[in-house]
Design a protein around this nucleic acid. Structure first.
Lengths: 123, 123
DNA sequence: TCTTGAGTTGGAGTGCACTCCAACACGTAT
DNA sequence: ATACGTGTTGGAGTGCACTCCAACTCAAGA
């Protein structure tokens, strides 16, 4: 799979894919005859997972750390699990905060509806 | 209220408070005899709300836009409500994504527990 | 009076996460 | 054979959101 295919399928730019490789988030893929990157299918799932960690606020340095542990093999299972457990807690906190904010926004919006009705009545 | 009090009560640094004022997120407070900022209590609630918008992914430019609308008075009620409605949708999307990620992390963690048990058995 | 501590300004610097660029190489279609 | 599209590299540049700094002023306490 060419870099452009991966880019299209993941939504990342080719620049970002090469950047992720440079910082160690993605393993360097083998090259074809022309020296072009030739990705395997498994990279797609990995990138999707990275995206989810990203979208839920995990910092790049930690994503890189996780990627390195993953490359190191089975002896890092426990450490990887711990990272996921820590992140899970952060996600739970965010989830709670987001729920509160959603409720607040509902109240704000209701309040604006009322204010708008009053303004209209005042004209 | 002095800038250091506001900083302590909100968790923002005094630098950030001045920065927020500079970009228009916070109204310039009156000054005391020494030329020091003298904040009213109402700024605390406003900053808490800004924090929540921040924590739920609203960009600074949009927070500034909302702050400006707020300063403009009642004729911006509808526009402010629309901003909040747009943001509410984004929060809903994030909430859904976060829920999915939480489930995924649960599965990953379980999976690591299994893998660790297998590793231990292999020794 | 002198020191200390808190505040002031404008502007420079930081860290993160990309994003863009110049200059070049390769393979395929015309 | 040449043009085109896609890829390559290393390094510079960008945008966001702060964060830090130098040089200064002011008020209160020893």
């Amino acid at each position: 799979m060419k870099i452009s295919d991966v880019a299209e399928k993941t939504g990342l730019s080719t620049d970002t894919l090469r950047f992720y490789e440079k910082i160690g988030l993605i393993q360097p893929p083998p090259r074809d005859g022309a020296g072009h990157r030739d990705y395997g299918e498994e990279v797609l799932g990995w990138i999707r997972f990275l995206d989810q960690l990203n979208a839920t606020g995990m910092r790049q340095a930690d994503r890189v750390r996780y990627a390195k542990l993953r490359e190191a093999g089975p002896q890092t299972y426990a450490e990887r699990r711990q990272m996921m457990e820590v992140h899970r807690e952060e996600v739970r906190v965010q989830l709670a905060k987001l729920g509160e904010t959603l409720a607040l926004l509902d109240r704000k919006i209701d309040h604006y509806h009322e204010l708008e009705a009053k303004e209209a009545a005042d004209v």
